Deep mutational scan, measured.
Amino acid sequence: IQLFSRPDFLGDHFSFEDDQAALPASFRPQSCRVHGGSWILFDETNFEGDQHILSEGEFPTLTAMGCLASTVLGSLQK
């Protein structure tokens, strides 16, 4: 999965292949690309809070990911 700090796959980005119990504190994903398989994104660290399940594809905004525009993602799980 690739996470981007701005909508439309712009800004800083991080790529992950494994579960992340905590995303970098200063990084707030605003768009993402899922390459193969599914990922669960969580509103809180340690895989807690609301879950957003994404299958392979491109998600140019938080709302395209099924999140509110104000959502701050905290962790993710493959």
Rank of each mutant, 00 (worst) to 15 (best):
I1K: 04
Q2R: 07
Q2K: 08
Q2V: 12
Q2H: 14
Q2I: 10
L3F: 15
L3Y: 03
F4K: 01
F4S: 06
S5F: 04
P7W: 01
D8E: 12
D8A: 08
F9N: 02
F9Q: 04
F9E: 01
L10R: 13
D12N: 12
H13Q: 14
H13V: 15
H13R: 12
S15G: 06
S15T: 15
F16H: 01
E17D: 14
E17N: 11
E17K: 09
E17R: 12
E17F: 10
E17L: 09
D18N: 13
D19A: 07
D19G: 04
D19R: 01
Q20H: 05
Q20M: 09
Q20F: 05
Q20L: 08
A21R: 13
A21W: 08
A22S: 13
A22Q: 14
L23Q: 02
P24K: 01
P24T: 01
A25F: 10
A25M: 12
A25P: 14
S26A: 14
F27Y: 04
F27K: 04
F27W: 06
F27P: 01
R28V: 15
P29L: 05
P29D: 06
Q30N: 06
Q30C: 07
Q30E: 08
Q30P: 03
C32E: 03
C32G: 04
C32D: 02
R33G: 03
R33D: 01
R33Y: 07
R33C: 07
V34Q: 03
V34P: 03
H35T: 13
H35L: 14
H35Y: 13
G36N: 09
G36P: 06
S38R: 11
W39D: 02
W39F: 07
W39L: 02
I40L: 07
F42C: 06
F42Y: 12
F42R: 01
D43F: 04
E44Y: 09
E44M: 10
T45F: 08
T45C: 12
N46M: 07
N46W: 03
N46T: 03
N46I: 05
F47Y: 11
F47P: 00
F47N: 00
E48D: 09
E48M: 14
E48C: 13
D50G: 14
Q51V: 08
H52P: 05
H52V: 13
H52N: 06
H52D: 00
L54E: 04
S55T: 15
S55E: 15
E56D: 09
E56S: 10
G57Y: 00
G57S: 04
G57I: 03
E58N: 12
E58Q: 08
F59S: 06
F59Q: 00
P60F: 00
T61V: 02
T61I: 04
T61S: 14
L62N: 05
T63W: 07
T63M: 13
A64S: 15
A64E: 11
A64P: 05
L68K: 15
L68G: 15
A69P: 14
A69D: 15
S70E: 13
S70W: 07
S70F: 07
T71N: 08
T71L: 02
L73C: 10
L73H: 06
G74V: 08
Q77A: 13
Q77T: 07
Q77P: 01
Q77E: 04
K78M: 09
K78C: 09
